[in-house]
Design a protein around this nucleic acid. Structure first.
Lengths: 195, 195
DNA sequence: CCTACCGATCGGTAGG
DNA sequence: CCTACCGATCGGTAGG
Protein backbone atom coordinates (compact mmCIF):
# COMPACT_ATOMS: atom_id res chain seq x y z
CA UNK A 1 0.00 0.00 0.00
CA UNK A 2 1.65 3.14 -1.27
CA UNK A 3 1.09 6.29 0.73
CA UNK A 4 2.22 9.75 -0.14
CA UNK A 5 4.86 11.50 1.88
CA UNK A 6 2.41 13.71 3.77
CA UNK A 7 0.75 10.65 5.24
CA UNK A 8 3.82 8.51 5.71
CA UNK A 9 6.11 10.93 7.49
CA UNK A 10 3.91 11.42 10.58
CA UNK A 11 3.33 7.67 10.62
CA UNK A 12 7.10 7.06 10.65
CA UNK A 13 7.55 9.51 13.50
CA UNK A 14 4.74 7.85 15.42
CA UNK A 15 6.09 4.32 14.97
CA UNK A 16 9.69 5.32 15.65
CA UNK A 17 8.64 7.27 18.75
CA UNK A 18 6.65 4.36 20.11
CA UNK A 19 9.46 1.88 19.57
CA UNK A 20 12.13 4.24 20.93
CA UNK A 21 9.99 4.76 24.05
CA UNK A 22 9.40 1.04 24.56
CA UNK A 23 12.75 -0.51 23.68
CA UNK A 24 15.10 2.44 23.75
CA UNK A 25 16.73 4.14 20.78
CA UNK A 26 19.83 1.97 20.52
CA UNK A 27 17.92 -1.28 20.88
CA UNK A 28 15.52 -0.36 18.06
CA UNK A 29 16.77 -1.14 14.56
CA UNK A 30 15.60 0.57 11.40
CA UNK A 31 14.49 -2.92 10.34
CA UNK A 32 12.15 -3.08 13.37
CA UNK A 33 10.63 0.27 12.41
CA UNK A 34 10.30 -0.63 8.75
CA UNK A 35 8.64 -3.95 9.64
CA UNK A 36 6.08 -2.16 11.79
CA UNK A 37 5.36 0.28 8.95
CA UNK A 38 5.16 -2.48 6.35
CA UNK A 39 7.89 -0.99 4.16
CA UNK A 40 11.46 -1.99 3.46
CA UNK A 41 14.22 -0.70 5.66
CA UNK A 42 15.99 1.02 2.74
CA UNK A 43 12.86 2.99 2.00
CA UNK A 44 13.28 4.83 5.26
CA UNK A 45 16.25 6.59 3.66
CA UNK A 46 13.92 8.45 1.40
CA UNK A 47 12.75 10.31 4.53
CA UNK A 48 15.88 10.42 6.63
CA UNK A 49 19.63 10.52 6.08
CA UNK A 50 20.53 8.66 9.25
CA UNK A 51 18.99 6.94 12.27
CA UNK A 52 19.96 9.97 14.36
CA UNK A 53 17.68 12.11 12.16
CA UNK A 54 14.77 9.99 13.28
CA UNK A 55 15.51 10.43 16.99
CA UNK A 56 16.01 14.15 16.46
CA UNK A 57 12.70 14.57 14.66
CA UNK A 58 10.80 12.64 17.34
CA UNK A 59 12.25 14.84 20.05
CA UNK A 60 12.27 18.21 18.29
CA UNK A 61 8.58 19.09 18.19
CA UNK A 62 7.75 17.79 21.66
CA UNK A 63 10.69 19.78 22.98
CA UNK A 64 9.82 23.12 21.38
CA UNK A 65 6.10 22.79 22.05
CA UNK A 66 6.86 21.85 25.62
CA UNK A 67 9.15 24.81 26.18
CA UNK A 68 6.63 27.17 24.58
CA UNK A 69 3.85 25.72 26.72
CA UNK A 70 5.92 26.08 29.86
CA UNK A 71 7.04 29.61 29.01
CA UNK A 72 3.49 30.74 28.29
CA UNK A 73 2.27 29.39 31.64
CA UNK A 74 5.19 30.74 33.65
CA UNK A 75 5.16 34.26 32.24
CA UNK A 76 1.42 35.00 32.35
CA UNK A 77 -0.48 37.13 34.79
CA UNK A 78 -0.56 36.52 38.51
CA UNK A 79 1.87 36.04 41.33
CA UNK A 80 4.93 33.85 40.99
CA UNK A 81 3.17 31.24 43.15
CA UNK A 82 0.14 31.23 40.86
CA UNK A 83 2.32 30.93 37.78
CA UNK A 84 4.43 28.17 39.33
CA UNK A 85 1.23 26.29 40.10
CA UNK A 86 -0.04 26.71 36.54
CA UNK A 87 3.32 25.81 35.02
CA UNK A 88 3.73 22.62 37.05
CA UNK A 89 0.17 21.50 36.34
CA UNK A 90 0.54 22.36 32.66
CA UNK A 91 3.93 20.69 32.41
CA UNK A 92 2.76 17.41 33.96
CA UNK A 93 -0.40 17.47 31.86
CA UNK A 94 1.65 18.11 28.71
CA UNK A 95 3.91 15.21 29.69
CA UNK A 96 1.08 12.75 30.22
CA UNK A 97 -0.80 13.99 27.13
CA UNK A 98 2.32 13.34 25.04
CA UNK A 99 3.72 10.46 27.07
CA UNK A 100 5.48 8.59 24.27
CA UNK A 101 7.34 11.55 22.81
CA UNK A 102 8.12 12.94 26.24
CA UNK A 103 9.52 9.59 27.28
CA UNK A 104 11.82 9.58 24.27
CA UNK A 105 12.87 13.16 24.98
CA UNK A 106 13.58 12.54 28.65
CA UNK A 107 15.09 9.07 28.35
CA UNK A 108 16.95 9.11 25.04
CA UNK A 109 18.14 12.72 24.92
CA UNK A 110 21.76 11.70 25.53
CA UNK A 111 21.69 9.46 22.44
CA UNK A 112 21.34 12.52 20.20
CA UNK A 113 24.44 13.79 18.46
CA UNK A 114 26.29 16.47 20.48
CA UNK A 115 25.30 19.24 18.04
CA UNK A 116 21.63 18.40 18.39
CA UNK A 117 21.89 18.10 22.14
CA UNK A 118 23.17 21.67 22.26
CA UNK A 119 20.26 22.84 20.12
CA UNK A 120 17.63 21.28 22.38
CA UNK A 121 19.19 22.13 25.70
CA UNK A 122 17.32 20.90 28.75
CA UNK A 123 18.59 23.98 30.55
CA UNK A 124 15.64 25.91 29.13
CA UNK A 125 13.31 24.25 31.62
CA UNK A 126 15.71 24.60 34.53
CA UNK A 127 15.99 28.31 33.95
CA UNK A 128 12.27 28.92 33.58
CA UNK A 129 11.54 27.21 36.90
CA UNK A 130 14.45 28.82 38.68
CA UNK A 131 13.34 32.27 37.50
CA UNK A 132 9.86 31.64 38.91
CA UNK A 133 11.34 30.66 42.27
CA UNK A 134 13.58 33.73 42.30
CA UNK A 135 10.60 35.95 41.49
CA UNK A 136 8.56 34.40 44.27
CA UNK A 137 11.40 34.98 46.70
CA UNK A 138 11.65 38.62 45.60
CA UNK A 139 7.88 39.01 46.03
CA UNK A 140 8.08 37.54 49.48
CA UNK A 141 5.67 34.71 48.70
CA UNK A 142 8.49 32.11 48.82
CA UNK A 143 11.01 31.65 51.60
CA UNK A 144 14.41 33.09 50.87
CA UNK A 145 16.54 30.54 52.70
CA UNK A 146 16.70 27.95 49.91
CA UNK A 147 18.76 27.91 46.74
CA UNK A 148 16.42 28.60 43.81
CA UNK A 149 18.40 26.41 41.41
CA UNK A 150 18.16 23.42 43.74
CA UNK A 151 14.45 24.00 44.26
CA UNK A 152 13.98 24.16 40.48
CA UNK A 153 15.75 20.83 40.08
CA UNK A 154 13.59 19.26 42.79
CA UNK A 155 10.41 20.48 41.07
CA UNK A 156 11.50 19.35 37.62
CA UNK A 157 12.71 16.04 39.01
CA UNK A 158 9.37 15.25 40.61
CA UNK A 159 7.48 16.42 37.50
CA UNK A 160 9.69 14.77 34.89
CA UNK A 161 9.86 11.51 36.85
CA UNK A 162 6.16 11.10 36.08
CA UNK A 163 7.10 9.58 32.72
CA UNK A 164 8.62 6.66 34.63
CA UNK A 165 5.44 5.58 36.40
CA UNK A 166 2.40 7.26 34.80
CA UNK A 167 -0.35 5.02 33.49
CA UNK A 168 -3.39 6.18 31.56
CA UNK A 169 -5.45 3.67 33.50
CA UNK A 170 -5.20 5.84 36.58
CA UNK A 171 -5.80 6.38 39.42
CA UNK A 172 -4.78 10.02 38.76
CA UNK A 173 -4.51 11.93 35.50
CA UNK A 174 -1.77 14.39 34.61
CA UNK A 175 -3.61 17.48 35.81
CA UNK A 176 -4.43 15.89 39.17
CA UNK A 177 -0.85 14.77 39.69
CA UNK A 178 0.41 18.22 38.72
CA UNK A 179 -1.95 19.88 41.20
CA UNK A 180 -0.77 17.71 44.09
CA UNK A 181 2.89 18.29 43.18
CA UNK A 182 2.49 22.04 42.68
CA UNK A 183 0.63 22.44 45.94
CA UNK A 184 3.26 20.40 47.79
CA UNK A 185 6.12 22.53 46.48
CA UNK A 186 4.36 25.85 46.95
CA UNK A 187 3.50 24.88 50.53
CA UNK A 188 7.12 23.85 51.05
CA UNK A 189 8.24 27.24 49.77
CA UNK A 190 5.92 29.23 52.05
CA UNK A 191 7.80 31.82 54.13
CA UNK A 192 8.48 30.51 57.61
CA UNK A 193 7.44 32.32 60.79
CA UNK A 194 11.06 32.85 61.90
CA UNK A 195 12.07 34.55 58.67
CA UNK B 1 48.87 -9.71 31.07
CA UNK B 2 46.86 -12.42 32.72
CA UNK B 3 45.11 -11.56 35.95
CA UNK B 4 43.39 -14.00 38.19
CA UNK B 5 39.65 -14.10 38.34
CA UNK B 6 39.46 -12.33 41.71
CA UNK B 7 41.13 -9.26 40.28
CA UNK B 8 39.53 -9.29 36.85
CA UNK B 9 35.89 -9.66 37.82
CA UNK B 10 35.57 -6.36 39.74
CA UNK B 11 37.53 -4.68 36.95
CA UNK B 12 35.02 -5.99 34.41
CA UNK B 13 32.10 -4.70 36.50
CA UNK B 14 33.78 -1.31 36.85
CA UNK B 15 34.51 -0.91 33.16
CA UNK B 16 31.08 -2.21 32.13
CA UNK B 17 29.31 0.06 34.62
CA UNK B 18 31.20 3.11 33.44
CA UNK B 19 30.49 2.44 29.79
CA UNK B 20 26.82 1.54 30.40
CA UNK B 21 26.39 4.81 32.31
CA UNK B 22 28.07 6.88 29.60
CA UNK B 23 26.77 5.33 26.38
CA UNK B 24 23.82 3.31 27.53
CA UNK B 25 23.56 -0.47 27.75
CA UNK B 26 22.34 -1.16 24.20
CA UNK B 27 24.88 1.14 22.59
CA UNK B 28 27.77 -0.52 24.42
CA UNK B 29 29.12 -3.65 22.76
CA UNK B 30 30.99 -6.41 24.49
CA UNK B 31 33.81 -5.58 22.08
CA UNK B 32 33.95 -2.04 23.55
CA UNK B 33 34.25 -3.46 27.04
CA UNK B 34 36.82 -6.09 26.02
CA UNK B 35 38.94 -3.45 24.26
CA UNK B 36 38.92 -1.25 27.33
CA UNK B 37 39.97 -4.24 29.42
CA UNK B 38 42.59 -5.33 26.90
CA UNK B 39 41.11 -8.79 26.39
CA UNK B 40 39.21 -10.43 23.54
CA UNK B 41 35.45 -10.18 23.38
CA UNK B 42 35.02 -13.94 23.51
CA UNK B 43 36.97 -14.05 26.76
CA UNK B 44 34.22 -12.15 28.55
CA UNK B 45 32.19 -15.32 28.26
CA UNK B 46 34.51 -16.93 30.79
CA UNK B 47 32.88 -14.58 33.36
CA UNK B 48 29.36 -14.15 32.03
CA UNK B 49 26.86 -16.17 30.02
CA UNK B 50 25.21 -13.23 28.30
CA UNK B 51 25.41 -9.47 27.96
CA UNK B 52 22.33 -9.27 30.18
CA UNK B 53 24.34 -10.92 32.98
CA UNK B 54 26.73 -8.01 32.95
CA UNK B 55 23.95 -5.44 33.27
CA UNK B 56 22.37 -7.48 36.05
CA UNK B 57 25.62 -7.76 38.02
CA UNK B 58 26.28 -4.02 37.74
CA UNK B 59 22.79 -3.22 39.00
CA UNK B 60 22.36 -5.97 41.61
CA UNK B 61 24.67 -4.82 44.37
CA UNK B 62 23.85 -1.12 44.09
CA UNK B 63 20.17 -2.02 44.23
CA UNK B 64 20.28 -4.24 47.32
CA UNK B 65 22.70 -2.01 49.20
CA UNK B 66 20.55 0.99 48.34
CA UNK B 67 17.36 -0.65 49.54
CA UNK B 68 19.08 -1.81 52.76
CA UNK B 69 20.46 1.68 53.31
CA UNK B 70 17.07 3.25 52.75
CA UNK B 71 15.27 0.74 54.97
CA UNK B 72 17.72 1.21 57.82
CA UNK B 73 17.30 5.00 57.69
CA UNK B 74 13.53 4.91 57.37
CA UNK B 75 12.86 2.42 60.16
CA UNK B 76 15.17 3.80 62.85
CA UNK B 77 14.25 5.81 65.93
CA UNK B 78 12.52 9.15 65.81
CA UNK B 79 9.38 10.63 64.33
CA UNK B 80 8.30 9.89 60.78
CA UNK B 81 9.46 13.39 59.80
CA UNK B 82 12.90 12.80 61.28
CA UNK B 83 13.21 9.45 59.53
CA UNK B 84 11.99 10.88 56.21
CA UNK B 85 14.63 13.57 56.51
CA UNK B 86 17.35 11.02 57.24
CA UNK B 87 16.18 8.67 54.48
CA UNK B 88 16.09 11.38 51.79
CA UNK B 89 19.51 12.73 52.78
CA UNK B 90 20.94 9.22 52.96
CA UNK B 91 19.36 8.22 49.66
CA UNK B 92 20.69 11.23 47.75
CA UNK B 93 24.10 10.80 49.35
CA UNK B 94 24.12 7.12 48.43
CA UNK B 95 23.18 8.06 44.86
CA UNK B 96 25.95 10.63 44.46
CA UNK B 97 28.49 8.40 46.23
CA UNK B 98 27.70 5.61 43.75
CA UNK B 99 26.80 7.77 40.78
CA UNK B 100 27.90 5.44 38.00
CA UNK B 101 26.16 2.32 39.28
CA UNK B 102 23.09 4.30 40.31
CA UNK B 103 22.89 5.85 36.86
CA UNK B 104 22.95 2.40 35.31
CA UNK B 105 20.30 1.20 37.75
CA UNK B 106 17.99 4.16 37.19
CA UNK B 107 18.51 4.61 33.45
CA UNK B 108 18.99 1.08 32.15
CA UNK B 109 16.70 -0.86 34.46
CA UNK B 110 14.16 -1.51 31.69
CA UNK B 111 16.85 -3.20 29.56
CA UNK B 112 17.08 -6.03 32.10
CA UNK B 113 15.26 -9.24 31.26
CA UNK B 114 11.70 -9.35 32.65
CA UNK B 115 12.62 -11.96 35.28
CA UNK B 116 15.42 -9.83 36.63
CA UNK B 117 13.28 -6.72 36.58
CA UNK B 118 10.81 -8.52 38.82
CA UNK B 119 13.59 -9.54 41.20
CA UNK B 120 14.89 -5.99 41.59
CA UNK B 121 11.55 -4.25 41.73
CA UNK B 122 11.70 -0.50 42.04
CA UNK B 123 8.49 -0.73 44.04
CA UNK B 124 10.59 -1.39 47.14
CA UNK B 125 11.57 2.28 47.30
CA UNK B 126 8.09 3.54 46.50
CA UNK B 127 6.65 1.51 49.37
CA UNK B 128 9.25 2.56 51.91
CA UNK B 129 8.64 6.24 51.22
CA UNK B 130 4.89 5.87 51.09
CA UNK B 131 4.89 4.07 54.44
CA UNK B 132 6.86 6.94 56.00
CA UNK B 133 4.32 9.45 54.68
CA UNK B 134 1.42 7.37 55.96
CA UNK B 135 3.08 7.12 59.39
CA UNK B 136 3.63 10.87 59.49
CA UNK B 137 0.00 11.45 58.62
CA UNK B 138 -1.09 9.05 61.38
CA UNK B 139 1.19 10.85 63.85
CA UNK B 140 -0.26 14.19 62.83
CA UNK B 141 3.09 15.63 61.78
CA UNK B 142 2.11 15.52 58.08
CA UNK B 143 -1.05 16.93 56.55
CA UNK B 144 -3.69 14.34 55.78
CA UNK B 145 -5.16 15.92 52.64
CA UNK B 146 -2.61 14.52 50.17
CA UNK B 147 -2.31 11.05 48.69
CA UNK B 148 0.70 9.36 50.31
CA UNK B 149 1.56 7.38 47.17
CA UNK B 150 1.68 10.54 45.04
CA UNK B 151 3.81 12.31 47.64
CA UNK B 152 6.18 9.33 47.69
CA UNK B 153 6.53 9.51 43.91
CA UNK B 154 7.23 13.25 44.08
CA UNK B 155 9.95 12.71 46.70
CA UNK B 156 11.57 9.83 44.84
CA UNK B 157 11.33 11.73 41.56
CA UNK B 158 13.16 14.76 42.92
CA UNK B 159 15.76 12.55 44.64
CA UNK B 160 16.33 10.08 41.80
CA UNK B 161 16.48 12.85 39.20
CA UNK B 162 19.73 13.94 40.85
CA UNK B 163 21.56 11.35 38.75
CA UNK B 164 20.63 13.40 35.67
CA UNK B 165 22.37 16.61 36.71
CA UNK B 166 24.73 15.92 39.64
CA UNK B 167 28.37 16.85 39.19
CA UNK B 168 31.13 16.09 41.67
CA UNK B 169 32.59 19.51 40.92
CA UNK B 170 29.76 21.09 42.88
CA UNK B 171 28.40 23.49 43.93
CA UNK B 172 26.51 21.15 46.31
CA UNK B 173 27.33 17.63 47.42
CA UNK B 174 24.84 14.81 47.84
CA UNK B 175 24.19 15.40 51.54
CA UNK B 176 23.58 19.12 51.00
CA UNK B 177 21.19 18.46 48.13
CA UNK B 178 19.38 15.83 50.19
CA UNK B 179 18.99 18.25 53.11
CA UNK B 180 17.44 20.95 50.92
CA UNK B 181 15.08 18.45 49.28
CA UNK B 182 14.08 16.77 52.55
CA UNK B 183 13.41 20.12 54.22
CA UNK B 184 11.36 21.29 51.24
CA UNK B 185 9.14 18.20 51.27
CA UNK B 186 8.75 18.09 55.06
CA UNK B 187 7.77 21.77 55.03
CA UNK B 188 5.34 21.05 52.22
CA UNK B 189 3.82 18.24 54.28
CA UNK B 190 3.35 20.37 57.43
CA UNK B 191 -0.24 20.30 58.71
CA UNK B 192 -2.12 23.35 57.57
CA UNK B 193 -3.93 25.76 59.92
CA UNK B 194 -7.35 24.97 58.48
CA UNK B 195 -6.98 21.20 58.99
C1' DC C 1 41.38 -16.33 29.17
C1' DC C 2 42.47 -17.39 23.51
C1' DT C 3 41.55 -18.93 18.65
C1' DA C 4 38.60 -19.45 15.38
C1' DC C 5 34.47 -18.93 14.17
C1' DC C 6 28.72 -19.17 13.60
C1' DG C 7 23.95 -17.26 12.20
C1' DA C 8 21.90 -12.93 12.07
C1' DT C 9 21.56 -8.58 11.92
C1' DC C 10 23.49 -3.69 12.13
C1' DG C 11 23.10 1.21 9.80
C1' DG C 12 23.48 2.71 5.41
C1' DT C 13 23.78 2.90 0.07
C1' DA C 14 23.91 1.02 -4.81
C1' DG C 15 21.37 1.32 -9.50
C1' DG C 16 16.88 1.47 -11.54
C1' DC D 1 14.43 16.86 -13.46
C1' DC D 2 10.84 14.64 -9.28
C1' DT D 3 8.28 11.22 -5.90
C1' DA D 4 8.15 7.09 -3.78
C1' DC D 5 9.88 3.43 -3.27
C1' DC D 6 12.26 -1.61 -4.63
C1' DG D 7 15.58 -5.81 -4.49
C1' DA D 8 20.04 -6.47 -3.41
C1' DT D 9 24.09 -5.68 -1.21
C1' DC D 10 27.85 -2.67 1.12
C1' DG D 11 31.40 -2.87 5.21
C1' DG D 12 31.05 -4.12 9.99
C1' DT D 13 29.21 -5.93 14.34
C1' DA D 14 25.89 -8.46 17.34
C1' DG D 15 25.69 -12.38 20.90
C1' DG D 16 27.22 -16.88 21.31
Amino acid sequence: MRKNSDERWPEILDVAGTMFAERGYSATSLQNIADELGILKGSLYYYIRSKDDLLYEVIRSVYWEGVANFRRLSTGDGTAAERLFAAVVGHVKYLTDNLIQTTVFLHEFERLSPARRRELSTLAYDELVRDLVVEGQAEGSFRGDVDASLVALAILGAANWVYRWYQDSGPSDGAQIGEVFADLFISGLAPRPQD
